[in-house]
Amino acid sequence: MVPSEMTVGDLIDRLSACDRAAPVRLAMNPFFPMSHRVADVFEARGELGRSVVYLAESRDPEGQLGVLPPEVAVALAWQAPTETPPRRPRRAARRR
């Protein structure tokens, strides 16, 4: 079974619900999730001669912005949700 691909129309529909002034980022590498700036959009012909649109990450050394926010990695199913462990009362030190 061939996975369905997001189309430009799907992307426009999703983006139309977002703040138009918000910066665009790429979420990369599910095993070490990082955030990257988007530098450009390119359209080319794919293997079957169909149009394919590519989002390019920035080549600027500052283009990689750091670790992806945990809530984004969870929403992408790249990480399982985690909760802070409950705090235990501290034990008193024993005197000898």
Rank of each mutant, 00 (worst) to 15 (best):
Met1Glu: 09
Met1Trp: 05
Val2Ser: 05
Pro3Asn: 02
Pro3Val: 01
Pro3Gly: 00
Ser4Gln: 11
Met6Phe: 02
Met6Thr: 03
Val8Tyr: 04
Gly9Trp: 07
Gly9Asp: 11
Gly9Asn: 12
Asp10Met: 00
Asp10Thr: 01
Asp10Ala: 00
Asp10His: 00
Asp10Phe: 00
Asp10Pro: 02
Leu11Gln: 04
Ile12Phe: 05
Asp13Thr: 11
Arg14Leu: 05
Arg14Ser: 04
Arg14Glu: 09
Leu15Met: 06
Ser16Asn: 09
Ser16Phe: 05
Ser16Thr: 08
Ala17Gly: 09
Cys18Ala: 07
Asp19Ile: 02
Arg20Gly: 04
Ala21Ile: 05
Ala21Phe: 08
Ala21Lys: 12
Ala22Lys: 09
Ala22His: 05
Ala22Arg: 08
Ala22Tyr: 03
Ala22Glu: 05
Ala22Cys: 02
Pro23Leu: 00
Pro23Ile: 01
Val24Asp: 06
Arg25Gln: 08
Leu26Trp: 10
Leu26His: 10
Ala27Thr: 02
Asn29Ile: 06
Phe31Gln: 13
Phe32Leu: 12
Phe32Lys: 12
Pro33Met: 00
Pro33Asn: 02
Ser35Gly: 08
His36Thr: 11
His36Lys: 13
Arg37Leu: 06
Ala39Tyr: 07
Asp40Trp: 08
Asp40Cys: 05
Asp40Glu: 10
Asp40Gly: 07
Asp40Ser: 11
Asp40Lys: 11
Val41Ser: 06
Val41Met: 08
Phe42Tyr: 14
Glu43Asn: 13
Ala44Val: 12
Gly46Tyr: 04
Glu47Phe: 14
Glu47Trp: 09
Glu47Gln: 13
Leu48Ser: 13
Leu48Pro: 13
Gly49Asp: 04
Gly49Met: 02
Gly49Arg: 03
Gly49Val: 00
Gly49Lys: 03
Arg50Val: 07
Ser51Pro: 15
Val52Arg: 10
Val53Phe: 03
Val53His: 05
Tyr54Phe: 03
Tyr54Arg: 10
Leu55Pro: 03
Ala56Lys: 10
Ala56Cys: 09
Ser58Leu: 02
Arg59Ser: 09
Arg59Leu: 09
Arg59Ala: 04
Asp60Pro: 01
Pro61Gly: 01
Glu62Lys: 13
Glu62Asp: 12
Glu62Cys: 05
Glu62His: 11
Glu62Arg: 12
Gln64Met: 15
Gly66Asn: 04
Gly66Trp: 03
Gly66Glu: 04
Glu71Gly: 02
Glu71Arg: 14
Val72Phe: 00
Ala73Gly: 03
Ala73Tyr: 03
Ala73Glu: 03
Ala73Lys: 04
Val74Gln: 01
Val74Leu: 00
Val74Ala: 00
Leu76Arg: 07
Leu76Pro: 09
Ala77Thr: 09
Ala77Gln: 14
Gln79Arg: 12
Gln79Leu: 05
Gln79Asp: 07
Ala80Asp: 12
Ala80His: 10
Thr82Asn: 05
Thr82Tyr: 07
Glu83Gly: 06
Thr84Tyr: 11
Thr84His: 11
Thr84Asp: 14
Thr84Glu: 13
Thr84Trp: 10
Pro85Ser: 01
Pro86Gln: 04
Arg87Val: 13
Pro89Ile: 09
Arg90Pro: 15
Arg90Phe: 14
Arg90Lys: 15
Arg91Asn: 11
Arg91Ala: 08
Ala93Pro: 15
Arg94Asn: 13
Arg94Met: 13
Arg94Trp: 14
Arg95Met: 13
Arg95Tyr: 14
